[in-house]
Design a protein around this nucleic acid. Structure first.
Lengths: 233, 233
DNA sequence: GCGCCACTTTGAGCCAGAGCAAACAGCCTC
DNA sequence: GAGGCTGTTTGCTCTGGCTCAAAGTGGCGC
């Protein structure tokens, strides 16, 4: 395989300020791979030999319970680390990572982890922040599930996705990830039926426009009111 | 204040294998304090100037939503770090920490964080694991809330507490933290009424014995079956 | 040892949202 | 462009668990 070009990672905040030589050294042990939509980068329970960085596309991180219930834990955006089981002292991946769209992933063997920590100043702190942020977000999800109605939770999930990957279109802001009603249900702990009903009502009230695996928000402010429980969708 | 004795922390895994001099140096910037039951070590939203280590007792970590709903995020046991906002790049505490019983806490100013990281080999990795573990646990909670019935969730919460702080008594295994029905409800996202009804039924069926702020598990195996949904309490 | 307060129990009614069922519509393949 | 998937919509029914209400009860302070 040809050496990877340092321009791939030169622009990422995690590697800011490094010399060309250092970038090359970091990339020496990395491999890049393309994943078609719906292909799995790694599967829950699989032995974790690598950690990964998303170069382009979107990854859906999914946890499956022993009974088969699935929960979408988060979406990974370009530039983010994922599958860093090695950092958390885990020997196998606690969730599966599925390409939500065609994606390009850079992967290092776990052995490269300590090297990166030493070589890249601030890498360690940045990783702490990444994991810390995810912990905060996950705890926020727990709070929501404990205290809010389904309608508010779904509204929040949609707004979060808009922030993460919203794309301006003539009709409004479109979520840039193919997103089924089922996905939305798995992010909010409800059923696709309930999500579908909510979106239908929101659409009738001019808040969103739905489509097959697609949601476009036409009235973000109105949806914020719904998320805060200060307005009925 | 008299210097703290190194025997306080010598036995903790995080500081294993350090020389007496190093232990003294680490303790030089720490302060210990005693917190009576129900006193707060720090409050949600407060500026995070210190990080903490629990020497003895139990701490309840509580998040409160803008609307006032409370969720018990976790219990901290002796020997664990908590309030490590500094590691996650947060400037204020995301939750409150309340002494569940009389407790002794060792606190360092944030400035000591990087020092500890450099001075103590393996400290960084241990902290990653701590945060990583909490992330896993929190995500497991999300899964439970999305896919399980209230009865199973409460049973799991009780079993988890038994593991963390169970004390053998003639009647069975008693949870070593004063635990109201309200606390249990806040850990599982339900109401104290429902928890009370469940415990009453479990008691009638010989699984547990309840008391004021107290729960004793008399049939752990039976409770596991309830937690797994393979038996009705 | 009395009274109070915080915690707990139990009852009754109700409703958000799950489960079940069935029809419907983009979109891709051949 | 016909056929078949996969994803979506919508109606109906049923129920777990929340809400409101009120009556216990253990234990601490005085």
């Amino acid at each position: 395989m040809a050496p990877l070009d340092k321009s791939l990672i030169a622009g990422l905040p995690a590697f800011a300020g490094l010399s060309d030589e250092e970038l090359d050294a970091i990339l020496a042990t990395a491999r890049s791979a393309r994943f078609a939509r719906d292909r799995s980068v790694f599967a829950q329970g699989e032995e974790a030999r690598h950690f990964h960085l998303l170069l382009s596309g979107h990854i859906r991180v999914v946890r499956t319970s022993p009974e088969g219930t699935q929960v979408v834990a988060r979406f990974i955006n370009a530039g983010e680390l994922f599958g860093i089981a090695v950092a958390m002292g885990l020997s196998s991946y606690p969730a599966s990572a599925i390409a939500a769209v065609d994606s390009v992933v850079l992967s290092w063997p776990n052995a490269a982890w300590s090297d990166l920590q030493q070589r890249v100043p601030g890498f360690s702190a940045a990783t702490y922040r990444t994991i810390g942020t995810r912990l905060q977000e996950t705890q926020a999800t727990v709070m929501e599930m404990a205290s809010e109605q389904v309608e508010q939770r779904v509204a929040r999930a949609v707004l979060r996705l808009v922030q993460q990957s919203g794309r301006k279109t003539p009709d409004g802001i479109e979520i840039g990830v193919p997103l089924s009603r089922q996905d939305l249900a798995e992010m909010t702990g409800t059923t696709l039926h309930t999500v579908s009903r909510l979106l239908s009502r929101w659409q009738a009230n001019g808040l969103v426009v739905g489509g097959r695996r697609k949601v476009t928000v036409t009235d973000p402010h109105g949806l914020v009111l719904v998320a805060e429980g200060r307005r009925d969708g």
